[in-house]
Amino acid sequence: MKIDRRFFIRKVLAVGVLLALPRILFAARPDKAFAATDGDEAMATLFGETPVASDRVVLKIPEIAENGAVVPVTISTDLENVESISVVVAKNPTPLAASFALGPRSVANVSVRIKMGESSQVLAVVKAGGKHYSTSKDVKVTIGGCGG
């Protein structure tokens, strides 16, 4: 029987990490990018480059948000070797809303619900194979008659 060495090493490493840091496995959050008050600044801090527009990044978000407090967002891509997926709301006070770190077993399809302070461009940025790709949509946030 052949032993899958890579799997074995990973297993040992995983157990090691578990012993060293019981339960909590949080890696470093990009705090500086989350603090940025400008969308370009947030992206420059997080990505170190301007993402290239790509129709292989699929952003599903309503054109007219029913309520800015809860806007459903789904981002997916067929790009290979996806490392991360991020959501940037250009006009929010702190534009970086969320960033998801994916691993080798991940399927690049993530959903989250976000807040939008006002109508804004929303960008989805995918890091794949060391490069950044993005797609964007303009989302209107309406004022409700009874809800607002």
């Binding site: 990973r10 297993k11 995983a14 157990v15 990490v17 578990l18 496995l25 949080f26 890696a27 959050r29 990009p30 989350f34 407090a69 809860v70 806007v71 709301v89 929010n92 702190t94 970086l96 809303a97 969320a98 960033s99 998801f100 770190a101 994916l102 691993g103 077993r105 991940s106 399927v107 399809n109 993530v110 959903s111 989250v112 619900r113 976000i114 807040k115 939008m116």
Partner: peptide
């Protein structure tokens, strides 16, 4: 024992957050 997904969030994620993700 594998970390299959990590989310970093700011304050612009909605109250009572929802997230979905998939892996193999």
């Amino acid at each position: 024992g594998d970390v299959v997904f990590t989310a970093y969030w700011g304050p612009a994620v909605s109250k009572n957050p929802f997230v979905s993700f998939s892996f193999l």
